[in-house]
Design a binder for these strands. Structure first.
Length: 469
RNA sequence: GGCGCGGUAACAAAGCGGUUAUGUAGGGGCCUGCAAAGCCUUUUAGGCCGGUUCGACUCCGGCCCGCGCCUCCA
């Protein structure tokens, strides 16, 4: 049975959907004003695996991931660039889609944009005012009254008194309570605006997610996910808004993924240790290397980014592909297998992808052993099982030969080098030399290819396979 | 100050109260014309101090160290 860590309780709990057989999942997506960094991508990949596994468990899943396409940073960036907001957001949404696709992240079932949900947002704010959870401030903004919601702070384990004592924000006079947050912002000159009962303005960030999630998934749904940093205040505020509006619970299970760090510190622009997906992919043999790296540790813990780590991921993936090499198509062994059992046990325990990957490595050894013993049919059968399992993680999705034809770029540049056909010709010539026991020539040809980053491997039966370094 | 997380071998990273994690790296062996790959085998663990227990890396307490959130942030 699947068990999931619930941030609301701090426990790993058995997962029981609200409606048997159905799961409704909402994940906070990104604000589109720049390229995705590795941290964004970790969130994408983590919830892509959650999505795959929930479906594998047989649930009818509705997966929503939103796009925040109106926000202070977007407005500022568009102004800096001197371009319309729509042009900016369209560009970065397209870039996000490309990056996600590279990493094997499938599109969510529904991908709402905040700007398309303004009517729902207005209705929600209206309801909050009616129920005494929100007020129109002297500034013209509509604010949420934190003190009207006794449960405020439950998700993040904070108490209102502590938060007030530690408040570092400039307290705006119009706020009844320094912790009150904005639902509807009065727009300044030149900013995008929508009409509202409280004058022209635009939605606050937190209310967008409450409106989109409940509009699409209902007032009470199964899982809400996002990055660790959204727990407070974003998700806390969502709870206050949604529960405030309905008077009943909002989300059953909260899931939060850990950060990507660099040198054990959070990636941030101010520290200058920031890596976008577009910075990294050109340094890799294949985008799968990044995905494998991200799944190599548990989703809740921090993960430390470094080139060394990516190199290790490359080698580990190569080992998996190597096991699958040269095997015919086959059907997996019927019924449960020890590998499948272990894999599923790992995934069932709060999506332990690190352990699931270890199962794949062990299975690869089994396949290699069978291959070495000449038991090709058996090896092929396990290879089919391997592929069924690895597709749940979205790794080892290529044809093995295609993997080995990719080369590992050096300093971000892919070596031009020799073509596949030239390599093949060289191998033929070397095989002829070997047949004639001309080992000097044979070794010379191997060295020629080695200098081009091509490694040869002589297999039994006079077959030679190759790989790019 | 408040809340929370973590310290595992050369590097990375899991599970687990007593039995090999896993990958990479190192040693030895098999295989190979020689290599490579693969397989077998093997060396390096559990921050520190106490406690519980027949037995603790695993549970409890204290200490030290690192990190995160408390402000926009995946």
């Amino acid at each position: 049975m699947l068990r999931i860590h619930n941030s609301l309780t701090g426990q790993v709990e058995p997962f029981v959907p609200l409606v048997p057989g159905k799961v409704r999942l909402y994940v906070c997506g990104i604000t589109v004003y720049d390229y995705c960094h590795i941290g964004h991508m970790r969130m994408f990949v983590v919830f892509d695996v959650v999505r795959r596994y929930l479906r594998h468990c047989g649930y009818a899943l509705t997966f929503v991931r939103n796009i925040t396409d109106i926000d202070d940073k977007i407005i500022r960036r568009a102004a800096e660039n001197g371009e319309p907001i729509e042009a900016l957001t369209a560009r970065y949404i397209a870039a996000m889609d490309e990056d996600a696709a590279q990493l094997g992240v499938e599109r969510p079932d529904i991908e709402p944009r905040a700007t398309a949900y303004v009517p729902e947002i207005l209705a929600l704010i209206q309801r909050l005012i009616e129920r005494g959870h929100a007020y129109v401030a002297s500034s013209g903004d509509v604010l949420y009254s934190v003190s009207s919601f006794p449960d405020y702070g439950r998700l993040s384990g904070k108490r209102l008194a502590d938060l007030r004592a530690g408040a570092r924000v400039d307290v705006e006079e119009s706020k009844h309570d320094p912790l009150d947050f904005v639902l509807w912002k009065r727009s300044k000159l030149g900013e995008p605006t929508w009409d509202s009962p409280w004058g022209p303005g635009r939605p606050g960030w937190h209310i967008e997610c409450s409106a989109m999630s409940t509009s699409l998934l209902g007032d009470y749904f199964d899982i809400h996910g996002g990055g660790m940093d959204l727990k407070f205040p974003h998700h806390e505020n969502e709870i206050a808004q949604s529960c405030g509006a309905t008077g009943h619970p909002f989300v059953k299970v909260w899931m939060h993924n850990g950060f990507v760090n660099v040198d054990n510190e959070k990636m941030s622009k101010s520290l200058g240790n920031f890596f976008t997906v577009r910075d990294i992919l050109p340094r890799l043999r294949h985008p799968e290397v990044l995905r494998y790296f991200l799944l190599g540790s548990h989703y809740r813990g921090p993960i430390n980014y470094s080139l060394t780590q990516l190199e290790q991921a490359d080698l580990a993936l190569g080992r998996l592909y190597n096991a699958l090499r040269g095997l015919p198509d086959a059907s997996p062994p019927p019924g449960a297998t020890p590998y499948r059992d272990k894999f599923e046990a790992a995934m069932n325990e709060d999506f332990n992808t690190a352990e699931a990957v270890a199962v794949l490595q062990t299975l690869a050894r089994e396949i290699n052993t069978l291959k070495a013993a000449g038991k090709v049919a058996e090896a092929a059968s396990w290879a089919a099982e391997f592929r069924a399992l690895s597709s749940l993680l979205g790794v080892v999705q290529l044809d093995p030969e295609a993997w080995f034809r990719c080369s590992q770029p050096v300093d971000g540049a892919v070596a031009e080098g020799v073509s596949d056909a030239q390599i093949q010709a060289c191998i033929e010539a070397r095989l002829a030399a070997r047949k004639a026991k001309d080992f000097a020539e044979s070794d010379r040809l191997r060295d020629v290819l080695a200098a081009q980053g091509v490694v040869l491997e002589d297999k039994p039966g006079g077959v030679t396979s190759w790989r790019r370094k």
